[in-house]
């Protein structure tokens, strides 16, 4: 491997990260699908948000698992969006729970998921930074 190349995000500890992302992609998407299919009218905003989170996790998993600058950009965008999402939704749900009658993955900074949704994007961004091409 040349010194100037970025290291693969899908190698070494990156595989552990991808495993966690894949599990969140599966669980968030499955949860949103069930919510939207069975009780969409109860809390449309929260369920659409669940679906969006699921898609973001899927895209992040693909970005981290793929090779090359395109996948790396995809991963940056998805993981960055994920961090913004969990911070915004987390803050909104802490301040005012009325608009979120049903929990999403990102509610209260991911409390329902052991706060992993809050830690995950930070680790993800750190890993993307760590494996980037040296200048």
């Amino acid at each position: 491997m040349r010194e100037t190349a970025a290291r693969a995000t899908s190698s070494g500890p990156g595989r552990v990260l991808i495993a966690v992302y894949a599990i969140f992609a599966l669980s968030a998407t499955a949860r949103a699908t069930v919510q939207i299919a069975t009780k969409f009218t109860e809390a449309p905003l929260a369920y659409l948000l669940s679906a969006l989170a699921g898609v973001v996790y899927i895209v992040a998993t693909i970005g981290l698992a793929g090779h090359g600058p395109g996948y790396r950009r995809l991963a940056w965008a998805a993981v960055g969006f994920e961090l913004v999402g969990v911070l915004v939704v987390g803050t909104l749900t802490v301040l005012d729970t009325a608009d979120f009658p049903d929990d999403t993955v990102w509610s209260v900074f991911g409390r329902g998921y052991g706060f992993v949704p809050l830690v995950l994007p930070i680790v993800g961004l750190a890993w993307l930074h760590w494996t980037r091409a040296p200048r």
Binding site: S11, G12, P13, R15, V16, A19, V20, I23
Partner: peptide, 13 residues
């Protein structure tokens, strides 16, 4: 991928 990280992947699963 035969690296040390395989065990941690299994732990996550």
């Amino acid at each position: 991928e035969p690296t040390r990280w395989g065990g941690a992947v299994l732990a996550v699963a």
